[in-house]
């Protein structure tokens, strides 16, 4: 199986040799492989059957972000034509480092990285949001409040706490400026970190056009602090993120707008928890780990009350 894939990869890349091909445990919607082509370590991502997200968009976005100087892996090859590798794919340079959030937050070797990360994350977001969107009009622009309300309704499990939060979100919608490129899932887990800090932003499959403050708010959602008391990705204070973002050319940050997106992000993660438990209950993927996630919904409900205390 991997022999066939290695040969096809050599063909696509016009490489003399493709070796050390191994499958990495990847995300739910992509198959990820690591391999070496003519001595260069590379990463292959292949779209999995049934994934509605367009790998072509992702390759487009990563190229545009790289061209704008944002820290991303270089795209070596990509295609939406399934004839070459069986499905749409993207090949990027392999960036060495750690992606597992708990290691980045706890291991001694990342002590320095944790100090510089808040500013680096802010600067990287400013670069992403400055990407020229001229060629990116195929990206989604959905209204997420509506999108997640519909997702929640589809599961048929009404949650009064979520309705209260939706009501607040509707009543406090921030004014929207011109849409920019938004990463859509910017947090520990989706960045590669070395001893020296941020090396690359990965997992662009939720990239879309929208309000830049969405990425800042999502980065501060409680779930992405992984138990740390620090609000920004578990490594920093709000002020550090906002100052670095503004200093790197991002627009002025209104903390209330970031908070609005953080509240929506908390609600989104709550709805996703219901969806994950539903994947088990409906029999798509039988797993006690997914089942247990269903009982984490109340963590998000509690976080919503905490975030909105004094703001209702």
């Amino acid at each position: 199986m991997t022999d066939v894939l290695a040969a096809a990869l050599a063909d696509v890349l016009t490489a003399r040799s493709v070796t050390d091909l191994v499958r990495l445990s990847g995300g739910a919607s992509r198959d990820t492989y690591r391999f070496v082509a003519d001595g260069t370590p590379l990463i292959l991502q292949r779209q999995r059957a049934g994934d509605v997200r367009d790998m072509g968009n992702e390759a487009l976005v990563v190229r545009a972000a790289g061209a704008a100087g944002a820290p991303v892996a270089d795209v070596v090859a990509s295609s939406t034509d399934p004839s070459a590798l069986g499905s749409a794919f993207m090949v990027v340079t392999a960036v060495e480092g750690e992606t597992i959030a708990r290691k980045i937050l706890r291991d001694d070797r990342f002590r320095h990285a944790r100090e510089v990360l808040p500013a680096q994350l802010g600067a990287a977001l400013a670069q992403v949001h400055a990407v020229d969107t001229t060629g990116l009009s195929s990206l989604p622009t959905a209204d997420q409040v509506r999108q997640y309300r519909e997702a929640l309704d589809q599961m048929g499990q009404p949650h009064p706490a979520f309705e209260l939060a939706f009501k607040w979100l509707d009543a406090n919608r921030p004014e929207v400026g011109p849409p920019v490129l938004v990463h859509g899932d910017f947090r520990l887990g989706n960045v590669i970190v070395g001893d020296d800090g941020l090396r690359a932003v990965i997992d662009w499959e939720l990239a879309h056009l929208g309000d830049p403050m969405e990425d800042l708010g999502w980065l501060c959602v409680k779930a992405w602090r992984f138990g740390s008391s620090l609000p920004v990705a578990g490594v920093g204070e709000y002020r550090q993120l906002f100052e670095a973002y503004e200093a790197a050319g991002g627009g002025a940050v209104d903390p209330d707008v970031v908070r609005w997106w953080e509240v929506l992000g908390t609600l989104k993660w709550g709805v996703m928890c219901i969806m994950q438990a539903n994947a088990h209950v409906a029999g798509l993927t039988r797993s006690h780990e997914l089942a247990a996630i269903g009982r984490r919904v109340c963590e998000n409900e509690h976080d919503l009350f905490l975030a909105l205390e004094g703001r209702w």
Binding site: L164, R296, C298, E299, E301, H302, F305, W312
Partner: peptide, 30 residues
């Protein structure tokens, strides 16, 4: 009824009661 605005004149009470429910769920879950 929250969504349709039927409880808009007593939202403070609604929030207090729903939060109490959420705390009970957490007392079991985590």
């Amino acid at each position: 009824r929250i969504r349709e605005g039927e409880l808009d004149d007593q939202l403070a009470q609604v929030r207090a009661l729903v939060w109490a429910d959420v705390r009970d769920k957490l007392a079991v879950a985590n």
